[in-house]
């Protein structure tokens, strides 16, 4: 149950793109066509699925305060957490290269459809963000970390798929000239994000949900609660 909850939470409520704006650069740059968007989305799911559990292990056994206790008594007091940025990004960059080599060797057809996106992924904030959120939310077990990686990846995939489909259609619409291209994409993403906020009540059911709201996103959670209470009042 815990796994399922985290899975759906990371897809819908804490959606990488709509709730935390991670991976926006590639999200905006590669969403012109559905087919390329699917390729990049699949690559992101895959890399998140691999790197989040890996970085969880790193965090658990090397970085966090007291994590080195397994090496010996005298190491128990070490706190290497200030190194986490550099360790995480090194893991990600290495994994991406490794995945690229393996995929090229064993499945050339997959490499042709996915390969060009892999170098892009090393600098995709969604990947590093996945690991950093995993650390700051203190996810407890490696199983949960894997589920979190998978869920976040799927959430990102859904977001880029949706915006690519909309952008393919919007070409036939009469958008004001200065907004064409980038401007309208921003505004549509904003509207989609507002839509995704309504998933907030999904897990705990309606009125009590505000406690579950993503803490990192908004600085003023109390303000959000106020507006949400207003909304529910209006609905009632």
């Amino acid at each position: 149950m815990e796994y399922l909850e985290l899975f759906f939470k990371s897809i819908f409520i804490d959606n990488m793109v709509f709730a935390t704006f991670l991976g926006m650069c590639s999200y905006l740059a590669v969403s012109k066509k559905v087919s390329t968007a699917v390729g990049l989305g699949a690559a992101v799911i895959f890399v998140l699925l691999v790197t989040v559990p890996l970085n969880w292990l790193l965090d658990q056994y090397i970085l966090r305060p007291g994590a080195l206790a397994w090496v010996g008594e005298e190491f128990a007091s070490y706190d290497l957490s200030f190194l986490s940025f550099i360790m995480f990004i090194a893991t990600i960059a290495t994994m991406v290269q490794l995945v690229e080599i393996i995929v090229e060797k064993f499945s050339p057809s997959l490499y042709n459809s996915l390969g060009i996106f892999l170098p892009l992924i090393a600098v995709n904030c969604a990947i590093l963000g996945g690991s950093l959120f995993m650390q700051s939310r203190e996810i407890a077990t490696i199983g949960l970390a894997t589920v979190y990686g998978l869920g976040s990846g799927i959430g990102w995939f859904l977001a880029i798929l949706a915006i690519a489909a909309i952008r393919e259609k919007i070409r036939y619409s009469n958008v004001p000239a200065p907004l064409r291209g980038l401007g309208i994409t921003f505004i549509i993403t904003g509207l989609m994000a507002i839509g995704f906020m309504s998933f907030g009540g999904m897990l705990t059911g309606g009125d009590e949900e505000t406690k579950e709201a993503p803490k990192e996103v908004a600085v003023e959670t109390s303000e959000i609660e106020k507006t949400k209470n207003k909304e529910t009042k209006i609905i009632n």
Binding site: F186, I187, G190, A193, A218, V219, E220, I224, T227
Partner: peptide, 12 residues
């Protein structure tokens, strides 16, 4: 204050 508005402001 909600995050979606940042996108819309940049759009504007």
């Amino acid at each position: 204050l909600l995050s979606p508005m940042a996108l819309i402001v940049v759009g504007l």
